[in-house]
Amino acid sequence: MFWAFRLATYFVIACATYIFLDIAIKGSRTVFTNRAPFINVKFLTEPPQTLYVFDYQGKKMELSDREFRKWQETHKEPVEATSVAYSAGGIWPCIVGTALLVVGSMIVALVIGISAAIYLSEYSRDTRLIRFIRIAILNLAGVPSIVFGLFGFGLFVIFFGWNVSLLAGWFTLGLMILPAIIIASEESLRAVPKGLREGSLALGATSWQTIRKNVLPYAMPGILTSSILGIARVAGETAPIMFTAAYAMRDEMPWQVPKWTDFFFQGVMALPYHIYVVSSKIPQNEYTERVQYGTAFVFLIVVMLIALASIVLRERQRRRLSW
């Protein structure tokens, strides 16, 4: 029996390794180049463009939209070019969009989630209503993400009239990971020894002062640990944002808005949605494959970086506590 368990474990590792290596190898062909600076800067810093492929004097040309038009100005002869959507340029707006979505929705989820956890663990008594709320939270955690997407579309996009916007995406994603944040935060709060609360109250602190100064700071590392998983999920989900926040294509960057308030009410491009679009919404060929794998690879790295940042943040807090 033992070898069966072992095999199952190895199987999982094999799958994970295969997926990761496949993306990394194929993706790195897009992301890295064999000439200095060895990184495909264009791919990381430009918005997506249409790619034009054509033969010219026996040479195969691959030009982006902009380059193609410039080229046509100097070369008057007509060419027969195949256009491939999104396959030139880069994915910079998607990286920015995903980062904005992650940061915003984590703020929404942490603020609401920690508040709810404080109420549940510090203030509420064990009544029937509270038990019902706990069950509701657990159930909410099991709701499929596409349902959250539809919910967000109905409530934020249509009913609140926020349209397809960052704000709608933040709240939809935030609500999606809210149950996980609440449950983990409550556990972290409960893990803080009772003696610290009593010690604080006995010194004449109010219960809010006690929570703010002497409970929450010690629970924070635990809460951040759990939210790291939340980050990966928020960054990765496509379904909740496809109706609420994501654009398939947008030329302006998020900070190019006429008024600062418009910042919250603009749709953005996002990495997972971009992968979805280039792999299912346009005809497939060798050129789109490059973008798909390149985007997937960058996506993995971005998620890793964000997770790493929150791990660093957590370790810093822990060290300050030394507890």
Binding site: P193, G195, L196, E198, G199, S200, A202, L203, N214, Y218, L321, S322, W323
Partner: peptide, 11 residues
């Protein structure tokens, strides 16, 4: 004021 059985200094 109160002093507890298990000493509970804050971290």
């Amino acid at each position: 004021g109160m002093v507890f059985q298990k000493s509970n200094p804050f971290p």
